[in-house]
Design a protein around this nucleic acid. Structure first.
Lengths: 207, 207
DNA sequence: AGACGTTTCAAACGGGCGTTTGATGAAAGG
DNA sequence: CCTTTCATCAAACGCCCGTTTGAAACGTCT
């Protein structure tokens, strides 16, 4: 019965994704995954050959999910026919979360965080996938504001400076520690936040 | 023999701290800890009552270590008799790493990162200890530059903006992904970095 | 109906985990 | 010299882990 089997396999993937994100690879047990998927323990080894393969499958799908960060951030910025200020604003807008819940794909981010702290080898150099796209886009965003005498290191440093201003909000929105800082990430607040960051950044860059 | 016993207990603490930082609580096994400390398995339950208590002891000592971030960052900034620019510069200088190796206490940071991703309950609200001191100092640093009409939310947002600019370098210096960004954290480079961030931040703040 | 391939399930396997135990060695005091 | 106390150690105890197994349940053909 192919219909139900597909269903079970997808339920397993979803349950595994959630538990891997919550607890990391080693602390997410196959028994818990099977229980959350409402299926039997052995289904994991039936559909995927092992827990390792299941994890690899989760990581693979997490990277090609529509909400993955890299592409969405990069794509619409390449149009060089817009003024530098507008492109910088577009960069900032895409990097700042529009809501606490949205704040990027929370599960995806936690999966990456686990992979950085405790590499399983499923993905070599996660940072390259997670950070480099932002960094490349950031370099494009700040380059027009720097003088021609600026070297590659200067561009990189300034790009990091810009990324940091945006990511700090993303990080604090994602973390559970909202108790002590009274920032709510509603769409309206995010728009104000983008305005503020863009204004301060542009002034900093001397525009 | 009390002398050797103290020695064993301290070796256990050091080994545990290293392994907890590397692998997190659940994946650091008591057998590995004992092996790294060159002692027997049962010593852990002899000197500390359990693995849990050993972990708590590691976390406790990590917070009162001289290299812990909070205090060192906060203390010398409280002098209100310095001009605002100087206090902001002091804030930035303390938050930007002076070398890749130094970049804060790496083990301490990894312990906190583990505790955020996989809370063991040993420390409630790690962020409050790790981030809040920076945030309070940052608010003090930016407050003089804001107009009197700025509300608490504005101050908080601007403080986050400033912290983000500094922490991004700290994070990238600490992470292993140095391959793709050609920034070296020598003392000289750090000084330049501080100058850059301070300059850009001051311009952004309209000073 | 009967045979066949697919999917689900309870039970068990070997291994690593944290912890406990009881023996052994080494100083200290009467 | 014998006892007491503290520190160390090898061995074992349950427990939970990922995986395997063999059979039952199910749908699909002839």
């Amino acid at each position: 019965m192919a219909g139900q089997s597909q269903n079970t396999k997808e339920r397993l993937l979803e349950a595994a994704r959630g538990l891997f994100a919550e607890r990391g690879y080693h602390n997410a047990t196959v028994r818990d995954i099977a229980a959350r998927a409402h299926t039997n323990l052995a289904s994991i080894n039936y559909y995927f050959r092992s827990k390792d393969d299941l994890y690899r499958e989760v990581m693979r799908s997490s990277f090609q999910a529509p909400a993955a960060n890299g592409e969405a951030v990069l794509a619409p910025l390449s149009g060089a026919d817009h003024p530098p200020e507008e492109r910088l604003r577009a960069f900032v807008r895409r990097l700042i979360p529009v809501s606490t819940e949205e704040a990027g794909d929370e599960q995806h981010k936690r999966l990456m965080a686990w992979e950085m702290l405790a590499p399983t080898g499923a993905i070599e150099r996660v940072e390259e996938w997670e950070i480099k796209p932002h960094l490349d886009a950031a370099q494009d965003a700040v380059r027009p504001f720097l003088s021609g005498g600026a070297g590659a290191a200067d561009i990189m440093t300034t790009a990091l400076w810009l990324v940091g201003q945006c990511l700090v909000f993303r990080k604090l929105a994602a973390g559970a520690g909202d108790g002590f800082h009274p920032i709510a990430f509603t769409p309206e607040n995010s728009a104000q936040l983008v305005d503020l960051v863009v204004t301060l950044a542009l002034r900093g860059l001397g525009a």
